[in-house]
């Protein structure tokens, strides 16, 4: 298949099934993109970090990034249009016809199932990301659960949790602090 068309279609599929904000997209992106070898899990995490530090939603940023890497600037346009098109059409139709859309009982029913499932999916991605962050030389199985773990990563993770939950620092600032801690810990400890 033509790469531009493929980028458009894959990201249209991702856009169509992203419900509940950009983070809901991470499990989808991870599956669709890593299966095609367009990006590794590290690459996905890099984009999450970039998205936190730059304006704009993760969904758009990752589509642009992957599109450009696969097929240059025009590939970026194809992927970005792909991820934006399904919701554009749906939002316009809803804006036109259903002002009380959210109160409709069928929509309510579907959402009552989707919301918890999305959380489960995001939790699964979180686990994958944490595993990748804590075992920087690679996961070596349950037998080496504690011996292979990198304690510097755990320390940064713990500081990050305290920073974001207790001190409520801005995510972008937290990413910058994590980067600084990474340089300090992994260079000198």
């Amino acid at each position: 298949m033509n790469i531009l068309l493929e980028l458009f279609l894959v990201f249209a599929k991702i856009g169509l099934f992203t419900i509940g904000g950009g983070y809901a997209m991470i499990p989808l992106i991870t599956q669709e993109i890593t299966q095609r070898n367009w990006l590794t899990l590290e690459g996905v995490i890099d984009i999450i970090a970039i998205s936190e530090m730059t304006p704009g939603p993760f969904a758009i940023n990752s589509a642009t990034f992957i599109g450009i890497q696969q097929a240059g600037l025009i590939g970026g346009v194809a992927a970005t249009m792909g991820v934006a098109t399904p919701s554009f059409i749906i939002v316009v139709v809803v804006a036109r016809y259903f002002t009380r859309f959210k109160d409709h009982h069928i929509v309510q029913g579907i959402l009552s199932g989707l919301r918890p499932a999305v959380i489960g999916l995001i939790a699964s991605s979180t686990l994958m990301i944490a595993q990748n962050a804590f075992y920087i030389t690679g996961w070596e199985g349950w037998a080496k659960l504690l011996s292979a773990v990198d304690w510097r990563s755990i320390a940064i993770f713990a500081l990050g949790l305290v920073g974001i939950i207790k001190l409520k620092i801005h995510p972008a600032l937290m990413i910058i602090i994590s980067a600084a801690l990474g340089i300090i810990f992994f260079t000198w400890l």
């Binding site: 995490i45 999450i48 918890p116 979180t126 993770f157 980067a179 260079t187």
Partner: peptide
């Protein structure tokens, strides 16, 4: 230089960020 080390830190930071997202979403929707 240092970019690789920075990204080791960022990966751990993103993991913490994601935990917070799961926590906040669970509190509001489950």
């Amino acid at each position: 230089p240092f970019v690789n080390e920075a990204f080791y830190g960022i990966q751990a930071g993103v993991a913490a960020l994601m935990c917070n997202v799961v926590y906040k979403l669970s509190k509001s929707s489950i």
